[in-house]
């Protein structure tokens, strides 16, 4: 995928023709500081949690709780859990440990009855939508010959179903495009609220009370980290015997 040259020309980006087939992105270095999902990322020496001493106490508690407390599944039943766990992995490209516990975070929100503030008139309430999506994913898998449901389908079929879901092209018992919006809203806000994801993308994280002083293009605060590709990731990984 990315190399020092492509990073300047942006050729590693999907719309610029890079390979986005399932599987781990090649040539991304392993994370050295802190944790990222799947331990790869563009900022191998950056750990946002290392700056936690500079955050206000309330924010620190909220963020650390996300890392430390992974609650059990309480809202979904066993079959829904099996199906949706795989679904969350596929839509977020989480193919190995460590994983951000997306499903647990979604489940917690639904269990607590926290709502997003709106519902399409032709849609069930969000919690019900999630359950129906699980059942429909299984049904779509069975229609493609996988009797065990979505979780047991091969990766190709899973991707085909998710692609159809994302384009609103499946024949389900609820408006498919709107259901995609509901579940992805939940998935994305879980994943990108997690500090491991911030490490992966090099986000500065909470910034109160310290703030930022260096706002210019290409400028960094002293605690922010350069992207990895100022180091050659392939050589770096080989050199350090990580693969």
């Amino acid at each position: 995928m990315a190399s020092p040259q492509t990073l300047a020309t942006a050729e590693h980006l999907p719309k610029r023709g890079c390979d986005t087939t399932p599987g781990p992105p090649r040539q991304l270095p392993r994370q050295r500081a802190g944790t990222t999902p799947q331990m790869r990322g563009r900022y191998p020496d950056y750990d946002v949690l290392a700056a936690a001493a500079h955050w206000d106490a309330k924010t620190r508690r909220a963020v650390f709780e996300r890392v430390a407390c992974v609650p059990p599944i309480r809202f979904f039943d066993e079959q829904q859990e099996r199906t949706l766990r795989v679904f969350c992995d596929v839509v977020m490209g989480q193919d190995s440990e460590p994983r951000i516990p997306v499903l647990e975070m979604v489940d917690t929100k639904l269990h607590a009855g926290r709502l997003d503030g709106f519902r399409h008139h032709d849609m069930p309430p969000d919690p019900q939508t999630w359950r129906q999506v699980a059942a429909n994913l299984d049904r779509s898998a069975r229609e493609r010959g996988c009797t065990g449901g979505f979780a047991d389908a091969g990766s190709e079929i899973q991707h085909e179903i998710v692609e159809g879901f994302s384009k609103g092209r499946l024949d389900w018992d609820l408006p498919v495009d709107k259901a995609w919006g509901v579940v992805m809203r939940g998935v994305l806000s879980a994943f990108y609220s997690h500090p491991w994801a911030w490490n992966e993308i090099g986000f500065g994280g909470p910034a109160y009370p310290r703030g930022y002083a260096r706002l210019g293009a290409g400028q960094r605060e002293h605690w922010e980290s350069p992207p990895s590709f100022e180091v050659d990731p392939v050589g770096d990984v080989r050199e350090r015997g990580l693969e």
Binding site: L13, P14, T21, P22, P25, V91, G93, H159, V162
Partner: peptide, 9 residues
């Protein structure tokens, strides 16, 4: 999926 992760990174 992977494309989203790439844009995010």
């Amino acid at each position: 999926g992977q494309a989203l992760r790439e844009y995010m990174r």
